[in-house]
């Protein structure tokens, strides 16, 4: 399966799975919402990588198109997420998700 000469797309897919796992662990372990956000970006990137790898494996450009849209949506998501964090930080001094359990600001 793993020949030493050329990395096949399996290698990339395995790497993307590992990256996704690391991202998941980060979201579950860290308490700083900014870093949780970064871990979500890691997971998105893992998925992007697998899309591109599969796109060249099955010789279909659509995988790259999906990644393009994921990039745009990720940008929008980060903008909204950081806006939320900024407006939460106006009322609190510490930045951990444990303090955000109440819905009322």
């Amino acid at each position: 399966m793993f020949s030493l000469a050329e990395p096949t797309s399996t290698w990339y897919l395995v790497l993307s799975a590992v990256l996704f796992g690391i991202g998941t662990i980060g979201v579950m372990v860290r308490r700083n919402p900014l870093i949780m956000f970064m871990c979500i970006e890691l997971m998105l990137n893992a998925v992007n990588l697998s899309f591109v790898a599969l796109s060249s494996q099955i010789a279909n450009i659509d995988g790259q198109v999906v990644v393009f849209f994921v990039l745009v949506v990720a940008a929008a998501e980060v903008v909204v997420g950081l806006g939320i964090i900024v407006s939460i930080m106006r009322r609190r001094t510490t930045l951990t998700v444990d303090d955000m359990s109440g819905l009322k600001g």
Binding site: T10, A17, V18, Q57, I58, A59
Partner: peptide, 19 residues
């Protein structure tokens, strides 16, 4: 996910119009 990748890989060949 890795198990899924390794076991199901054989079914995926070039099917699109090409990159």
């Amino acid at each position: 996910v890795i198990a899924a990748i390794v076991t199901s890989r054989s079914g995926l060949g070039p099917s699109g119009k090409g990159v």
